[in-house]
Design a protein around this nucleic acid. Structure first.
Length: 294
RNA sequence: GGUGCCAUAGCUCAGUCGGUAGAGCAACGGACUGAAAAUCCGUGUGUCCCCGGUUCGAUUCCUGGUGGCACCA
C-alpha cells in the first residue's frame, strides 16, 4: 500500500514502482473512482494509464452510490484474483477509510435504503438534530454515550442503522480486524510541510491551466451529488453561482487541498504499521527502499 | 508644503475612562468503522510602529519622528 497526503507524489511513484516490479495498481481514492473527474482529482492521465494497468479509476458514474464497504469487497476480491499472476500488487491512494477498509475490514452493517435515508434527512432539515439525537439515545444508549454529539453525520448514520437493522448500532460495531489472505506492507510518503504545500498550490494552478473550469462546468448541474462534494469542484460551483471571484475560488481550492492534506497526515500518523519515506530527502532511493520492505 | 485620520495576531479589525490585549478568517493540533476530498472538535501564535515625556505603572495620555490614507495647496 502506497499512501500519503494529496500532492505528495503517490501517482508518479506508484507507476515507477509498478513498472519496475511488473504489477498493476489498485487506486484507493474515493473521488478518482468516478468518471470524468480527472483534472480536479489529479487522476492518472491517459498516458499513465497506458503505462500501467489501473483498477478503480474512472469506473463509476458520479451519481452512483459507493462506499468504503463496497470498496473493501471489490478490492479484496480483485487483489486475490491478481495474486494468481502477481506476487505483489500495489494499492495506491489517499482515502484513509478506503485503505483501512481493505487492510483491516469494516463491520457488517446493513445498507440503508433510500426511503429511510430521505426520511431522516427530512426530519433533520425540519427539526434539526435534537429529535434524531433523542431517538438514538433511546435505541442505542451505549453508542449515544461515545458518539460526538455535535457531528450530525455520525448521529444520523447511527440512527439509520438502528432503524434499518432493528438492533443497536453499537452491537454491530465489533471493531474486529479481519484477516486477509495476503501480506500487507504499508509505505507512507510524506514531504516537508512547506514543500508539500507549495506542490499543492502549484498543482492547483496547473489544474486550472489544464481546463478544470470546463470540467467543473460540466458537473455544475449535478452539484448536489455526494461525489461532487469535493475540493476543486465545490469552490468553482460557488464561483459559477456568482458568490465570489475566480481568484477567490482558486485560493480556496488551494487552501482546502492543504487542509485535506493535513487531515490525511493526522489520520495516517496513528497507524504504526506505516513505513514512512520523506520524499523531500534527496538522498533516499525510493524504489530500492520500498523493494527492501517487500 | 499644510490640515485631518490611521498604525494592535499571518490578514481584516475591536479594545484597554492608564494595571502588557480579543473577535472573525487564516494557521496549527485532534477525532473518525458502510456518504470519508465527507463530517465534527480543540488551540491565541503579539516589541500593541519608533524615540522620548508624564506616571508606582504607558499599547492606552502628551511632544517629536516614520509610514499609510484623505482633503487643501
Amino acid at each position: 500500500v502506497l499512501l500519503g497526503p494529496t500532492g505528495v507524489g503517490k501517482t508518479d511513484w506508484s507507476i515507477l514502482l509498478a513498472e519496475k516490479i511488473g504489477c498493476p495498481i489498485l487506486s484507493a481514492d474515493s473521488r478518482q473512482i468516478y468518471k470524468g473527474m480527472t483534472i480536479g482529482t489529479a487522476a492518472p492521465t491517459g498516458e499513465q494509464l497506458n503505462r500501467v494497468k489501473h483498477y478503480f479509476v474512472g469506473k463509476l458514474s458520479p451519481d452512483e452510490y459507493y462506499s468504503a464497504s463496497l470498496f473493501e469487497d471489490e478490492a479484496v476480491e480483485m487483489i486475490q484474483d491478481l495474486h494468481k499472476q502477481h506476487d505483489t500488487v500495489i494499492m495506491s491512494g489517499g482515502s484513509m477509510l478506503y485503505i483501512d477498509a481493505v487492510c483491516n475490514g469494516i463491520d457488517e452493517i446493513p445498507t440503508v435504503d433510500d426511503a429511510l435515508r430521505l426520511e431522516i434527512q427530512e426530519l433533520y432539515k425540519k427539526e434539526g438534530i435534537d429529535p434524531i439525537r433523542n431517538q438514538l439515545r433511546l435505541l442505542d444508549p451505549e453508542f449515544y454515550n461515545v458518539v460526538d454529539l455535535k457531528n450530525p453525520k455520525r448521529i444520523i448514520h447511527a440512527l439509520e442503522i438502528c432503524l434499518m437493522s432493528g438492533k443497536p448500532y453499537s452491537l454491530l460495531r465489533t471493531n474486529k480486524k479481519k484477516p486477509r489472505p495476503f501480506r500487507i506492507v504499508k509505505v507512507g510518503f510524506n514531504r516537508d510541510r512547506d514543500e508539500l504545500y507549495s506542490r499543492i498550490n502549484q498543482r492547483v494552478d496547473i489544474m486550472i491551466q489544464d481546463g478544470l473550469l470546463e470540467e467543473a462546468r460540466g458537473f455544475y448541474p449535478n452539484r448536489q451529488l455526494n461525489s461532487l462534494n469535493t475540493v476543486g469542484y465545490k469552490e468553482l460551483f460557488d464561483y459559477f453561482d456568482g458568490n465570489n471571484t475566480l481568484e477567490y475560488a482558486i485560493d480556496k481550492i488551494k487552501q482546502h487541498s492543504r487542509n485535506y492534506a493535513r487531515k490525511q497526515i493526522t489520520w495516517f500518523k496513528r497507524d504504526k504499521d506505516i513505513n514512512w519515506i520523506n520524499l523531500s530527502d534527496p538522498n533516499i532511493n525510493v524504489l530500492d527502499t520500498i523493494e527492501s520492505l517487500l
